[in-house]
Measured scan of single mutants.
Amino acid sequence: VTLFVALYDYEARTEDDLSFHKGEKFQILNSSEGDWWEARSLTTGETGYIPSNYAAPV
């Protein structure tokens, strides 16, 4: 399992994006889409796309 942590807060701009807060942890589901990764929040259980430059490996 690849775990990442949010470096900044992010507010979803589309219904496919995932809103999150700094410090929140994610499981990365798909990182082959370039700058946007499909991720599941370990806090909320929700799935959506996150900007890859807002996350770092745990």
Rank of each mutant, 00 (worst) to 15 (best):
V1T: 13
V1S: 13
V1Q: 13
T2C: 14
L3S: 07
L3K: 04
L3G: 03
L3T: 09
F4N: 01
F4D: 01
F4Y: 15
V5H: 05
A6T: 04
A6Q: 00
A6I: 03
A6F: 01
L7N: 03
Y8F: 12
Y10S: 02
Y10E: 00
E11W: 09
E11R: 08
A12F: 02
A12D: 01
R13G: 08
T14L: 09
T14V: 07
E15G: 13
E15V: 11
E15M: 10
D16Y: 15
D16T: 14
D16V: 13
D16K: 15
D17K: 15
L18W: 05
L18S: 01
S19V: 03
S19H: 06
S19P: 05
F20Y: 00
F20V: 04
H21D: 06
K22M: 07
K22Q: 09
K22E: 07
K22L: 06
G23E: 03
G23A: 02
E24N: 05
K25H: 13
K25D: 02
F26Q: 00
F26V: 02
F26L: 12
F26T: 00
Q27W: 15
Q27V: 15
Q27I: 15
Q27A: 10
Q27E: 15
I28W: 01
I28K: 03
I28C: 05
L29F: 08
L29I: 12
N30E: 08
N30K: 09
S31D: 12
S31V: 12
S32T: 13
S32P: 12
S32A: 12
S32G: 12
E33H: 14
E33T: 12
E33I: 11
E33G: 14
E33R: 15
E33V: 11
G34W: 08
G34D: 13
G34F: 09
D35C: 11
D35G: 11
D35P: 10
D35R: 07
D35A: 10
D35F: 12
W36V: 07
W36F: 10
W36T: 06
W36H: 07
E38Y: 15
E38P: 05
E38M: 15
E38G: 03
E38C: 15
A39S: 03
A39T: 04
A39W: 01
R40L: 14
S41P: 02
L42Q: 07
L42P: 03
T43F: 08
T43W: 11
T43D: 12
T44D: 03
G45A: 04
G45C: 09
E46R: 14
G48C: 05
G48N: 00
Y49T: 07
I50A: 00
I50F: 04
P51M: 06
P51L: 07
P51V: 03
S52W: 13
N53E: 10
N53L: 10
N53P: 06
N53S: 14
N53H: 13
Y54C: 09
A55C: 14
A55H: 04
A55M: 15
A56S: 10
A56C: 09
A56F: 08
P57V: 08
V58I: 13
V58C: 10
V58S: 08
